[in-house]
């Protein structure tokens, strides 16, 4: 047991910063994919057919692509096109590009739950498409999709580990670093798993808080 504890205390210089990278990656990609996902949703419900088609094809393509492939495309193929990005920004771009498709799907299902009368009343008041969407429909849609949106973000948090396979020094890479210090790998991985269980907690609390605060009165 004391061996197990020592794996953490002796290697805090590796474990701490790596988890910190994971948290930063998660926050960055989380905000990014929420923004891009909302934009994609707006495209998919807009009155302009070209934008609708673009949004739909983007989501269709990305949903059926493994995230590891998105990473591989950006890490191995993009430099061959003359686009040299560093590993951490690459990981952010990959996570945002991938997760925003799922954010879009969730948000679109949320829009479908907003009663038609809301949009009709807004139009009767003379609101334009951007006003209807921005002030009336999306705020209500966001409130109804808190649980599935949190699942998407939770999945994204777990997906950050894939970046470890592509040279980003985050929590998924702790095992590789500590195997060089010949630590017991099972203990190391147990600590990584515990770390992720702890990281999920704030997400659960946020979800509870938002659900309580944002309960839509209907």
């Amino acid at each position: 047991m004391s061996n197990f504890i020592h794996v953490l205390t002796d290697n805090w210089d590796i474990i701490g910063p790596h988890f910190w990278t994971t948290i930063k990656l998660f926050l960055f990609a989380g905000i990014g994919s929420l923004v891009l996902g909302t934009l994609l949703t707006a495209m998919r419900v807009s009155p302009i057919p070209a934008l609708r088609a673009f949004g739909t094809s983007y989501v269709l393509l990305v949903r059926n692509t493994p995230l590891t492939l998105v990473f591989a495309l950006l890490v191995f193929a993009a430099p061959k096109l003359g686009l040299n990005i560093d590993y951490v920004p690459t990981a952010r771009v990959a996570l945002i590009a991938y997760t925003s498709a799922f954010v879009c799907e969730v948000l679109r299902s949320g829009i479908n739950t907003v009663p038609v009368g809301q949009a009709e009343a807004a139009r009767a008041l003379g609101m334009t498409f951007t006003q209807v969407l921005g002030s009336i429909v999306l705020p209500q849609a966001f409130r109804t999709v808190v649980p599935p949106m949190m699942s998407v973000l939770n999945a994204m948090l777990k997906n950050t580990t894939i970046a470890a396979g592509f040279s980003v020094a985050e929590a998924g890479a702790i095992q590789a670093y500590l195997s060089e210090r010949s630590e017991n790998q099972i203990y190391v991985l147990l600590w990584v798993a515990i770390g992720f269980l702890i990281l999920v907690l704030p997400l659960i609390f946020t979800q509870r808080m938002l659900e309580r605060r944002w309960r839509v009165a209907r």
Partner: peptide, 19 residues
């Protein structure tokens, strides 16, 4: 459902090597 899939795979891959 809470542990990242990649970490589960690492457990199964590096665990036996450790043993």
């Amino acid at each position: 459902r809470a542990i990242p899939l990649l970490i589960l795979i690492f457990f199964a891959y590096y665990g036996p090597i450790q043993l």
